[in-house]
Amino acid sequence: MNHPTWRTVILSPHFDDAALSLAGLIPGLPGPVAVVTVFGGAPAAHHPVSWWDSTCGFSTPREAHRARLAEDARACLLLGAHQLVLDHPDGPYGDGAEPTGIDRLLAALPRDAAVLVPVGSNQPDHQRVRDRALAVRAALGAPPPLLYADLPYTGHLPEWGTDEADRALARSPMCGLAYQDLLRTHRTTVRHHLRLTDAQWAAKREAVLCHASQLAPLAADHGSLLARTGPLRAELVWSLEVRG
């Protein structure tokens, strides 16, 4: 795997995570940009449909996968990003194996390429992606990846979208535990804190709407998901430094 022209690579655990968490920032990141869905592999035919996919209206796992793949392609096109999908199946359809496709991807990148990984808030698959990327970058002798806040999870902080968001996440028992775990081994510095303008919000909303198959269940869990003042209204990215 060799993609030497990519200057920014975003590891998105699932098909909607990059759009939900970073659609406002992606157009301004150094390009070319690649959005890499880690758990984007096709499910094996023998699996029954998962609870989540059934709730989203699908009858079979492969029907859900085909729809999500097409949704992601549309979102990436709108965001001006290259779509790349690793072959690890999503959680309900996987075997619990480590997402080793991350290793090959990161080893093929230039040392100075920017890699963005999720904090891991309230989602075990997100934390697996984060921890794997941290370990691989360290083994390669490359700088740590950048860290992005997982939305909509972190967007439920009362301080979200304010200058207090970073400090609030560092003490929140609701959605900050993964961030607090990381702080034991790394120092963080806010690199981007975007409060979306009306124009940025409109563009983000269009990209998020591409992932239509999951929006109704997400809204059931996260309330006013698509409201201008909802959890997606701000985006936060940190740089990392390993503690000595």
Results as ranks from 00 to 15, higher is better:
residue 139 A to H: 03
residue 102 I to R: 01
residue 107 A to G: 08
residue 80 G to W: 08
residue 83 Q to M: 14
residue 80 G to H: 11
residue 117 V to I: 15
residue 153 Y to E: 08
residue 85 V to K: 09
residue 154 T to P: 05
residue 68 R to E: 05
residue 116 L to A: 12
residue 152 P to M: 06
residue 135 A to I: 04
residue 79 L to D: 01
residue 127 Q to G: 04
residue 174 M to E: 10
residue 115 V to Y: 09
residue 73 A to M: 14
residue 154 T to R: 04
residue 84 L to M: 13
residue 107 A to F: 07
residue 65 H to I: 09
residue 143 P to K: 08
residue 112 D to Y: 14
residue 145 P to S: 08
residue 162 T to C: 01
residue 90 D to T: 02
residue 163 D to E: 12
residue 186 H to E: 10
residue 132 R to G: 00
residue 133 A to W: 00
residue 89 P to V: 04
residue 83 Q to Y: 06
residue 94 G to P: 08
residue 178 A to Y: 00
residue 116 L to W: 02
residue 183 L to W: 02
residue 74 R to Q: 15
residue 138 A to F: 03
residue 111 R to V: 13
residue 77 L to S: 15
residue 122 N to Q: 10
residue 88 H to C: 05
residue 140 L to W: 00
residue 183 L to A: 15
residue 182 L to R: 02
residue 130 R to I: 06
residue 71 E to S: 11
residue 119 V to Y: 03
residue 151 L to M: 12
residue 125 D to A: 09
residue 130 R to Y: 01
residue 114 A to V: 13
residue 91 G to T: 07
residue 155 G to R: 04
residue 188 T to M: 12
residue 91 G to L: 07
residue 110 P to Q: 14
residue 73 A to S: 15
residue 180 Q to C: 13
residue 142 A to H: 15
residue 106 L to E: 11
residue 115 V to M: 07
residue 123 Q to P: 00
residue 182 L to W: 00
residue 107 A to D: 08
residue 138 A to S: 09
residue 115 V to P: 14
residue 181 D to L: 13
residue 116 L to D: 01
residue 92 P to S: 03
residue 122 N to K: 00
residue 152 P to S: 09
residue 121 S to M: 06
residue 160 W to H: 13
residue 112 D to R: 14
residue 108 A to H: 12
residue 106 L to I: 13
residue 179 Y to Q: 13
residue 168 A to L: 08
residue 68 R to V: 05
residue 69 L to D: 14
residue 131 D to I: 00
residue 179 Y to G: 06
residue 183 L to G: 13
residue 109 L to V: 12
residue 127 Q to W: 02
residue 95 D to C: 12
residue 98 E to S: 11
residue 147 L to V: 05
residue 139 A to R: 13
residue 189 T to M: 14
residue 172 S to W: 01
residue 146 L to Q: 15
residue 110 P to T: 12
